[in-house]
């Protein structure tokens, strides 16, 4: 569940607590309280649980915010940096595939939370597509929050049944000579795709390669951009 993202900064507003300090016989208006009303039921339950956990001393008041700050600061560009490094450095690529946690720490991405990251490599013959059919598991600790479509019921249910149809809708089509491998990250691992390095990028610098790697290519519904052709 991702109801925690983009939470309004009103947690300590007394008006947020379930019972207001007075009943509402009339329809008079409290300025500044509109946001409270728009909070969904699950969001309110989440905040209540979080406050209980803090109150009982299970977590510190800052723990949730700190982890969310780290995740919110991450973006697909971080994944792109890791990919570009793997393209440039075959030894790093091997370490990334075999022990992603250590490889990521090596390039400045220490582990954030419990989930273990796994990296699957695309080649000319094999293409991976990542989905979480049960919820919306995603390598948030490296790529930041997932795109909305990744969490949609349509994507989650169709990707495991008709991956080629789904990819076609994203503008991606493979012949039968390519094996499509759908990874359903239903349990404790979070999967990221190491996309195939585009042709014609041999002489490019690492920073130029980073710019070619799209978020979609890290999930497998896309491939990296082609480099601009010099006239």
């Amino acid at each position: 569940m991702n109801i925690g993202w983009n939470r309004p900064a009103i947690r300590r507003d007394p008006g947020l607590t379930m019972g207001s300090d007075h009943d509402h016989p009339g329809d008079h208006h409290h300025p500044g309280t509109e946001e409270d009303i728009t909070l969904s039921q699950p969001a309110r339950r989440l905040l209540a649980m979080e406050e209980l956990l803090v109150e009982k001393g299970v977590i510190g008041a800052d723990d949730v915010r700190r982890v969310m700050d780290v995740i919110a600061a991450r973006s697909p560009v971080d994944g792109a940096r890791v990919v570009a490094r793997a393209w440039m450095d075959p030894a790093f690529k091997l370490r990334l595939l075999e022990d992603p946690r250590a490889a990521l720490a090596e390039v400045g991405y220490p582990p954030v939370s419990g989930s273990k990251l796994a990296v699957v490599e695309n080649t000319e013959r094999v293409h991976h597509l990542v989905v979480c059919s049960l919820c919306s598991c995603y390598p948030t600790s490296l790529l930041g929050p997932p795109p909305d479509w990744y969490k949609s019921f349509a994507y989650r249910s169709r990707a495991v049944v008709d991956p080629r149809g789904v990819m076609r809708e994203f503008g991606l089509e493979f012949g039968e000579g390519v094996e499509v491998r759908v990874v359903d990250s239903a349990a404790d691992l979070r999967y990221m795709v190491l996309p195939l390095r585009p042709e014609g990028t041999e002489g490019m610098a690492e920073e130029e390669l980073v710019a070619l790697v799209t978020r979609d290519s890290l999930v497998g519904v896309g491939v990296p951009n082609q480099p601009a052709v010099n006239p």
């Binding site: 495991v160 049944v161 008709d162 991956p163 080629r164 149809g165 039968e176 000579g177 390519v178 094996e179 499509v180 491998r181 759908v182 990874v183 359903d184 990250s185 239903a186 349990a187 404790d188 691992l189």
Partner: peptide, 18 residues
């Protein structure tokens, strides 16, 4: 998925199972 599957014979699905 049987013959309803629209894709290559080599296509696979991978899931982590306890």
């Amino acid at each position: 998925w049987g013959l309803r599957y629209r894709g290559g014979e080599e296509d696979k699905l991978l899931v982590d199972i306890y």
